[in-house]
Design a protein around this nucleic acid. Structure first.
Lengths: 144, 144
DNA sequence: GGACGATGGTGAGGAGAGCTAAGGATCTGG
DNA sequence: CCAGATCCTTAGCTCTCCTCACCATCGTCC
């Protein structure tokens, strides 16, 4: 085993533990108890990329379609998204945000200062730059 | 809102999504189906820091004590850890690894090459360096 | 020395979040 | 027009973590 390979194995170990602990922390740190992190992620993606089908949404979030169905059902029940039939393809459904969801996302963006953004703000600019790059790399790893 | 604050909010958003997706991917990518990622993390921590009480272990993993109890019970059932009474404090219990756990961790370390280490190896040395720093920063964020 | 709050572990119950397998509706290519 | 592919959904399961409550033990204070 080469030096580099050993280092990579150690990195894999540390990175895995760090990501697990960090994601736990993120889940617990959500502000509004009624809307979970998974729900928020779906809403964010919808806002960023516009209305799309459940399947597309699932692909974006790297989740299986049935999982996303549940999320959409829950969000629809809360009046945060609408389900409208696809204009030409009868199989598909288009998920769109309601004004209430927009408000919620705005409120959440503000409230997020309470923790993650606040914590990030305490870091050095260099550390933030590292995280910014790392986010891109991790997303690449997650999608590959 | 200043420029930096805006950037930080965007970073919070992207980082959150990236970590969520990445951790989902990690969970699915485990090799041995009988031992879950949570179990492995606990075993890894025990190996790295030596025997400790369930409470300490929970603190290390940023988890509540009852959650760690379950993990320990499961691991004991699989013969991977032992529970011995604390020499002086009758309330405490000391969790230690069995030889079987050592073997499992070795096997896991080797098998991990199959995915995460393999993927990391494909990255540039610069990207790995970024992740190495990011792991430290995320752990700091998770613990604070 | 005994009562009493603090600490540590666990039992019970529940919620969130993901998966696979399978079913039903719709589209499309032959 | 039928057969297979595609899309969403239902059903049922697992894993992970939580809170609340309980019990045993420790340390302290009267």
């Amino acid at each position: 085993m080469s030096r580099t390979t050993l280092d990579t194995a150690a990195l894999a170990h540390d990175l895995r533990l760090a990501v697990m602990r960090f994601s736990r922390r993120l889940r617990n740190q959500r502000v509004d108890q009624s809307v979970t992190l998974t729900h928020l992620a779906a809403l964010s993606t919808l806002r960023r990329h516009g209305p799309m089908s459940p399947g597309e949404l699932a692909a974006h979030e790297r989740v299986q379609p049935p999982s996303m169905t549940r999320v959409v059902v829950a969000l629809e029940g809360m009046g945060l998204v609408t389900r409208t039939p696809h204009p030409t393809d009868g199989r598909q459904v288009v998920i769109g945000l309601t004004p209430a969801a927009d408000e919620l996302l705005d409120a959440e963006a503000r409230a997020r200062e309470a923790w993650l953004s606040g914590r990030l703000q305490e870091l050095s600019a260099e550390d933030r730059a590292v995280l910014r790059e790392a986010a891109v790399i991790m997303d690449k790893l997650a999608s590959g």
